[in-house]
């Protein structure tokens, strides 16, 4: 019934070929690269203004050649803020995706596959973590890693010679990453576990087992590929949530530090001003939505490409 007995790498090679044929996915990939390139490279060019330089004589200005997206409530160039904010948000998105996928997938797989007591213990742990008040956890985390992250800043400043202003925004994100790492994978772990439970009773797993394959081989070669659909769908769902969580946290002093921006904080600030200057909301939201939409199509394409069942389509 299942055909995934081929060698691992051939599965991936097939997948790559199928992905390259998927026009929507490739377009999305291009778009994502474009957005990421714009966020990381464009600010290095002289055309993008300093995102943190206030100009109180030019508050909430309309779009112009000098300020393509206009200016914000302190007269700062909105384009620059969106681009710089993109760096933070893309980074958060990347970390969130990696953590959710790796931790959630492995945890769920093991829990579902092991079953019995182990499963119960692992899933009840998830329940506990799920119900813990998120803000409390994050604040406590950030307090305990405040010192290490400060030391890291100092170390980076000393080791690389970068200015403190350019290092601090990144090391300041450390508590946030820890928080995402700690809690971002819970829902996915539950979903993966349910599906693993279902899959492990199926014939192909029994067959693999009777062939004498090791548990690890069964788990990662035979069960995991069947779960990629769920993982991809869930990840594209969870990433926007995490990016927005970042904005909530930066308002209590965690995450990105003012005056630096992220898409989340820009959208939050824009939402407060939507009645008076909607463009403050529209531009960052546009970038945010386009990126996530592209991510979504890419994810779907990836899933179709990897899914062993679509192999014969």
């Amino acid at each position: 019934m299942k055909r995934c007995y081929e060698e691992g790498h051939s599965l991936w090679r097939d997948a790559r070929r199928r992905l390259a044929r998927n026009r929507a996915a490739m377009g999305s990939l291009l778009l994502l690269l474009l957005v990421a390139g714009a966020c990381f490279l464009l600010p290095l060019s002289p055309w993008v203004a300093n995102p943190n330089e206030a100009n109180l004589d030019n508050i909430a200005a309309a779009c112009s050649w000098e300020h393509p997206f206009g200016t914000d409530q302190l007269g700062r160039d909105l384009l620059a803020r969106v681009l710089y904010g993109g760096r933070i948000s893309l980074l958060v998105g990347l970390v969130a995706t990696l953590v959710a996928t790796l931790v959630g997938l492995v945890y769920g797989l093991i829990s579902g596959y092991a079953g019995g007591r182990t499963d119960a213990l692992m899933m009840r742990t998830v329940d506990v973590l799920f119900a813990l008040p998120f803000i409390v956890l994050v604040v406590v985390f950030s307090l305990s890693i405040e010192e290490p992250s400060r030391e890291l800043t100092e170390y980076l400043v000393a080791a690389t010679g970068w200015s403190r202003e350019s290092v601090a925004p990144l090391t300041g994100l450390l508590p946030l990453f820890v928080a995402i790492g700690a809690l971002g994978w819970l829902t996915l772990a539950r979903m993966v576990r349910t599906q693993t439970l279902e899959l492990k009773g199926q014939e192909f797993v029994l067959a693999a087992r009777s062939l004498g394959l090791s548990h690890a081989a069964i788990l990662f070669r035979h069960i995991a590929p069947n779960l990629l659909g769920t993982v991809v769908v869930y990840t594209t769902l969870a990433v926007p949530g995490m990016m927005l969580t970042e904005s909530t946290l930066s308002f209590i002093g965690l995450g990105v530090r003012p005056p630096n921006s992220s898409w989340g904080t820009l959208i939050k600030e824009g939402a407060d001003r939507m009645e008076v200057s909607p463009e403050l909301l529209i531009f960052p939201a546009l970038f945010f939505c386009i990126t996530l939409l592209a991510l979504n199509f890419l994810g779907d394409g990836l899933r179709d490409a990897i899914d062993p069942r679509s192999a014969k389509d």
Binding site: E53, I135, E165, S250, F251, I252, G253, R257, P258
Partner: peptide, 17 residues
């Protein structure tokens, strides 16, 4: 921003709960 522009002095901002 004013301190930076007028005095060349950098200050950090810590938003607290």
């Amino acid at each position: 921003s004013m301190w930076q522009q007028v005095l060349g002095v950098h200050a950090e901002i810590r938003a607290c709960e």
